[in-house]
Each structure stands twice: as structure tokens, then as C-alpha cells.
Design a protein around this nucleic acid. Structure first.
Length: 376
RNA sequence: GCGUCAUUGGUGAAGUGGUUAACACGCUGGUUUGUGGCACCAGUAUGCAAGAGUUCGAUCCUCUUAUGACGCC
């Protein structure tokens, strides 16, 4: 089967929704944060460790797995779940985001056929098309495949975005036409920057194609303002069906997740928790802390006493700082566990708040604490 | 005892008679939003062993002292 989404409750004061996604690999409650495992690995963690964070869906990336080891290798291994030993749902990103950053000359390299670019590994000239992206994802056998879309920068002009979303819709059609894995859902992607009419057009036209779920793309890139991100969500959501999952791509700042949930988003993914972990930073309810800071040299307390993650149960800030400063990869792993758990816990708390119709109170309390770092 | 050479930030060190003493590491902060993993950005010697002299001006030239390395008796 493909996935099935059930909307179970809506917050009384906001658009926040509590729901469940049924997949071939178990049920997942939403709102939910999805950790990113680009190359079939949540960097530095075993899948058991990821599961211990109470993860539901995780991500992998079509572009990276296409280049190495190749979709056939993973297909012969029995699919992505077996290959990477993850016994839970997996979503694959289409590769669009990566390919556009590799396309040197946007006007020349991005054509109706697809995107021309050079491999970041060996410089080989490659072409990724909507059909190719879907074919790769079919073979990877993820539970959710994403349409191949163009992800323009926040700085793109209105006219550029207009042409871009029209092409993205044509690409979505082409991808859907060749999608052939009966166990895999396929999501459409809404673009259109922070323009109300473009988001509406993109959403309405994409929904006409009848996907298994919808995502809001093109946010949180190259210095886009928070206001524009929230506008992009607000302008897209009204046109998405209530009985399908909504996915805000690439968002993982705690406050942005809350604001997304309030606006009706169900699932999120982001590299932030794992990337900042490798650079020594940790989320806490009082804001981000940097374990590189000298003040933690002899701090023999956990990152957060109110955190139930493996790292906080067993390690002190002093030890974590030591690992980070000497470059031991265990430091990045332990911080990744904490940060992933932090964001998943945040979505768990949001689910509870929706059930109690207290999302706004939760938002205000969280932000107040998160931005006022001195109080304890 | 005599002679030669050396002495520049936390470390390794570059350098010049004249506006802010290179670079690297370290250190101190910061950044990171569909991951081209382990990156990027910023700050970090009011001083060039100590003292005196020459000079308009000295870290750079001269002298003395200290310390060190090497050589000779």
C-alpha cells in the first residue's frame, strides 16, 4: 500500500493538526520532525540510535544515492530499508535541491528536459530529469518519493518564479506519469516564493494532479526572512486538501517548526540538528548553546536536565566539549542524538498541545524561554 | 676566560631604518534551515630579551648586560 493519512484533531485556535500516517513500516504521528540521512546514514548514528530518539520517518537523498552507490546496488540489496537497516518509513528527496546548486548557469543548465550539471565527485557531466529522479526513487523503494521540482533562491524575481512554477508543474506531471512503485507514495511540491498569487497557482495546479501528499518548498534558503517563510506557508496551505499530509521542506529551527505547525504543517525535515551538532552546538529550551565555549570546560552537568535523550542521561557538557574540541567524532554523534531528540520531543509536545487546544500557549511559553537565555 | 651566532604573541615562525609586525596553528566568540559531512566568518603581539646610544624616526644600526648554542684555550 501507499501511505494513508488520517486527520484526528485540529487545534481550536490555530490551524495546527494532530494526525497519523499509516505506512508499510508502521504508523507515525504528526506533527513530526524527520532527521536527514542524505547518503543513507544519519551522519554518525546507527539506526538503533536514531530509533531511540523516537524517530518516525527519516530522509535519504536521490542525488547522492544515484551517484554512489547507485540505485541498482540499493535495489539489489533489497531496497533502502534493508540496505541501511532502518525498519521505519523513509522519504527520499528528489535531488532537485542538490542539482540546482550544482547547475552553474541557471538559464542555460536548467532546461525543459531537466537539469544539466557536473557531478560534485568527479566533475562528470550529468542530466537529471523528472523521469530519471522518479525512476531512481522507485528503485530505492522509499515509502515516500518527492516530485522533481525547481527550488529557486529567495532572491528570484517574480517573473523567474512564475516561469519556474509552471515548469515545475509540467515536471510533476511527467514524474507522476512514470511513477511505478505500488508501495511508494508520491508527493507534489508547491513553489512560488513569498507571492500570494504564485503560491495559490502552484498549489491549485499541483493538487489537480492528485498526489499522495504535498510539500511546501523553496523556503529557508539563502537568507530568506522569517516573514517570507511564514507568508509562503500561509499562501499555500489554504489550497491543500485537509486529508493529505503537508510537508514543509528543509525547516528545522525550533521556532520555525512551531510556526509551521500553527499554520497547518504536519512534517518537517532539516539538517540543522545534525550539522550544528558536528560543529559543537546543542539545542536547549533556553536557546542554542555552543559546547566549544570555554565556560563549559569544567561543567559537569548534562546539556539539559529536562532532556530524556541518551546523551543527557550519560554525559556531561565538560566531556562533550572535550570530544568536540579534540575532534573526536563521538562528540558529533552524541550531540546529534541530543539535537534530533530535542526536535522530535518538540513535535511530541506540539501533538499534546493540539490535543489540549493549547498550541498558542505552548508557542508563547516556548519562545519566551528559548529567546531569554539567561533565566533558568 | 676568549671568539662566533642567536634572542620577535600561547606555539612554530616571516619581516622591514618610516602609515595597521606576514602566515600557520592555538585560543576567544559567532554562523549554519529539501547536507557538495567534519565547514565558514570575525577577533586575538600598543610590541620584536633588558638598558643606553646614533637618527627627524629603530624591532631592524652601535654599545653594555642577561640567557642560549657552537668553537677555541
Amino acid at each position: 500500500m501507499k501511505i494513508e493519512y488520517s486527520l484526528l484533531k485540529t487545534d481550536k485556535n490555530t490551524k495546527a493538526r494532530y494526525g497519523k500516517i499509516k505506512t508499510n513500516y508502521g504508523e507515525v504521528e504528526t506533527p513530526m520532525f524527520m532527521p536527514v540521512g542524505t547518503r543513507a546514514s544519519i551522519k554518525g548514528l546507527t539506526t538503533d540510535q536514531v530509533k531511540q530518539c523516537n524517530s518516525g520517518i527519516i530522509l535519504a537523498n536521490t542525488y547522492h544515492l544515484w551517484l554512489r552507490p547507485g540505485e541498482d546496488v540499493i535495489n539489489h540489496a533489497g531496497g533502502l530499508h534493508k540496505f541501511m537497516n532502518y525498519n521505519g518509513p523513509i522519504l527520499t528527496d528528489s535531488g532537485g535541491f542538490q542539482v540546482f546548486s550544482l547547475a552553474k548557469n541557471k538559464e542555460k543548465d536548467i532546461t525543459e528536459e531537466g537539469v544539466h550539471f557536473k557531478s560534485h565527485i568527479d566533475g562528470k557531466k550529468l542530466l537529471l530529469t523528472p523521469e530519471k529522479s522518479i525512476a531512481i526513487q522507485n528503485k530505492l523503494d522509499s515509502d515516500i518519493a518527492m516530485s522533481f521540482d525547481e527550488c529557486p533562491p529567495a532572491s528570484a524575481s517574480y517573473q523567474y518564479l512564475k516561469n519556474s512554477i509552471e515548469r515545475t508543474i509540467r515536471w510533476a506531471k511527467r514524474g507522476k506519469a512514470v511513477h511505478s512503485n505500488p508501495n511508494q507514495a508520491l508527493f507534489g511540491i508547491v513553489q512560488g516564493g513569498a507571492y500570494e498569487d504564485l503560491r495559490k497557482f502552484s498549489a491549485v495546479e499541483t493538487v489537480k494532479l492528485d498526489f499522495d501528499g504535498y510539500s511546501i518548498g523553496g523556503v529557508a534558503n539563502d537568507g530568506e526572512s522569517k516573514e517570507d517563510m511564514y507568508k509562503a506557508i500561509d499562501y499555500s496551505i489554504p489550497y491543500l486538501p485537509i486529508d493529505k499530509v503537508r510537508y514543509l521542506m528543509g525547516v528545522g529551527d525550533p521556532i520555525d517548526i512551531i510556526e509551521g505547525v500553527i499554520r497547518g504543517v504536519d512534517i518537517f525535515d532539516c539538517v540543522l540538528p545534525t550539522r550544528i551538532a558536528r560543529h559543537g552546538q546543542a539545542f536547549t529550551s533556553h536557546g542554542k548553546i555552543n559546547l566549544n565555549n570555554a565556560k563549559f570546560i569544567e561543567d559537569f552537568t548534562p546539556i539539559a536536565t529536562d532532556c530524556d535523550c541518551y546523551t543527557c542521561k550519560h554525559y556531561t557538557k565538560s566531556y562533550l566539549r572535550h570530544l568536540i574540541t579534540v575532534g573526536e567524532s563521538l562528540g558529533g554523534s552524541l550531540l546529534s542524538i541530543h539535537n534530533i531528540r530535542f526536535l522530535i520531543k518538540l513535535t511530541e509536545d506540539l501533538r499534546q498541545a493540539i490535543k489540549e487546544d493549547k498550541v498558542l500557549e505552548f508557542r508563547n511559553q516556548f519562545i519566551n524561554k528559548y529567546q531569554n537565555k539567561n533565566t533558568d
